[in-house]
Simulated scan of single mutants.
Amino acid sequence: MNNIKITYHRWFREKSIETTFPSCWSEMTPRQFLALTSRPDDHELLAVMLDIPKRIVKRLSLLQIHELANLFDFIKRDQKVSSFSLTTLRIPSAGILHSPNPKLQEMPFMQFVYVDTFYMSYAVDPRFETLCKLVSYLYSPKTGFNKITADANIDKIRKLDKKTLEAISLNYGLIRKWITERYPLVFPKHSNTRKSHDSSWLDVFDNIVGDDLKDRDKYAEVPVNAVFRFITKKIKEGRK
């Protein structure tokens, strides 16, 4: 976190205020994350990032604005996070939905398959319907992920502000970047087509289940990190 001291003039008097500015994505508050992804005017964005009134930002000199703008360099430098900034979503008639835990801990593998498929599809063809499905499958009730509930919540997710949904999509993308670096053998750097990507997760699931079809639902609930560790182990064994 960057500690900032801002000096400005008001009524011919010099005043100062001490505040902070995030140095990486993980230090941002939900309000700052939404502001950065929704692209407001420069004064509004700086006010939110510095957590100070907009009227003070408007009193800053061009040199001060330029120096503060340099603090946004972390956007290019730090392109991954391990947790969601928006940990909850309040949905009318659906209550409060929760994001996955940091590092996607305890996230069911089948939930990841759905979410990642929607995310990759939205990256190629950014349709609002796909974005709503992504968020609906990503955020779950306190009781945990359930496909029937996720499908039922899609219509309710459509009523949320699109900028909020896009912020969530970006947040997942940053977490996905963290995951790919943690499991490089599972996510090789060379990219495949969307079709092969989608089918690959289904192939992974089928390989894990094998002939044990009666316990298919149990395998779907296996934490995604456990699946990635399993895949990594099998790849290493295959290279020996």
Score class of each variant (00 low, 15 high):
residue 221 E to V: 02
residue 30 P to M: 00
residue 121 S to R: 09
residue 109 F to E: 08
residue 205 F to W: 11
residue 184 P to A: 03
residue 19 T to N: 14
residue 42 D to F: 14
residue 20 T to F: 09
residue 82 S to Q: 12
residue 48 V to T: 12
residue 105 Q to F: 03
residue 220 A to F: 04
residue 165 L to Y: 02
residue 37 T to P: 13
residue 131 L to H: 13
residue 130 T to M: 12
residue 216 R to C: 01
residue 78 D to L: 12
residue 74 F to Y: 12
residue 53 P to S: 03
residue 235 I to F: 05
residue 195 K to A: 13
residue 40 P to H: 08
residue 90 R to P: 01
residue 169 S to K: 11
residue 209 V to E: 15
residue 82 S to L: 15
residue 34 L to Q: 04
residue 114 Y to I: 04
residue 48 V to M: 10
residue 80 K to W: 08
residue 45 L to G: 06
residue 65 I to T: 10
residue 199 S to R: 07
residue 154 I to V: 09
residue 7 T to R: 11
residue 75 I to C: 01
residue 12 F to I: 08
residue 101 N to A: 04
residue 227 V to F: 07
residue 197 H to L: 15
residue 45 L to A: 09
residue 67 E to L: 12
residue 40 P to K: 04
residue 34 L to F: 04
residue 111 Q to P: 12
residue 192 N to F: 05
residue 110 M to Y: 07
residue 124 V to Q: 10
residue 205 F to Q: 05
residue 16 S to G: 05
residue 83 S to R: 04
residue 201 W to C: 04
residue 198 D to A: 10
residue 150 A to I: 02
residue 67 E to N: 05
residue 119 Y to E: 08
residue 108 P to N: 00
residue 195 K to I: 03
residue 38 S to A: 06
residue 196 S to D: 14
residue 181 E to K: 11
residue 138 L to M: 14
residue 50 L to F: 08
residue 64 Q to V: 06
residue 41 D to Q: 07
residue 125 D to E: 05
residue 39 R to Y: 06
residue 208 I to A: 04
residue 168 I to N: 12
residue 193 T to G: 10
residue 204 V to W: 01
residue 39 R to V: 15
residue 24 C to A: 13
residue 148 I to S: 10
residue 67 E to Q: 12
residue 220 A to D: 11
residue 188 P to R: 01
residue 127 R to Y: 05
residue 194 R to Y: 14
residue 137 Y to Q: 06
residue 45 L to F: 07
residue 140 S to V: 08
residue 159 K to Q: 14
residue 210 G to E: 14
residue 30 P to N: 01
residue 93 S to I: 11
residue 6 I to R: 10
residue 232 T to W: 00
residue 189 K to F: 01
residue 175 I to K: 02
residue 46 L to F: 06
residue 57 V to L: 02
residue 162 K to F: 14
residue 65 I to C: 02
residue 36 L to S: 00
residue 162 K to M: 14
residue 95 G to R: 07
residue 62 L to R: 00
residue 150 A to G: 06
residue 108 P to V: 05
residue 70 N to C: 08
residue 155 D to V: 13
residue 177 K to T: 03
residue 6 I to V: 12
residue 49 M to P: 00
residue 26 S to C: 06
residue 187 F to T: 03
residue 32 Q to S: 02
residue 190 H to C: 05
residue 147 K to I: 12
residue 29 T to E: 02
residue 54 K to P: 08
residue 6 I to F: 11
residue 99 S to A: 13
residue 203 D to N: 09
residue 79 Q to S: 10
residue 17 I to T: 11
residue 100 P to M: 00
residue 215 D to G: 04
residue 162 K to P: 06
residue 135 V to F: 08
residue 207 N to K: 15
residue 37 T to D: 01
residue 141 P to L: 06
residue 11 W to D: 14
residue 88 T to V: 01
residue 176 R to W: 06
residue 92 P to E: 13
residue 57 V to Y: 03
residue 162 K to T: 14
residue 187 F to C: 03
residue 234 K to C: 09
residue 119 Y to N: 10
residue 219 Y to S: 00
residue 54 K to F: 06
residue 77 R to Y: 15
residue 18 E to W: 06
residue 23 S to G: 14
residue 204 V to R: 04
residue 189 K to Q: 05
residue 86 L to S: 10
residue 50 L to W: 15
residue 221 E to S: 01
residue 171 N to E: 14
residue 145 F to V: 07
residue 24 C to F: 13
residue 162 K to Q: 14
residue 44 E to P: 04
residue 209 V to Y: 07
residue 172 Y to W: 00
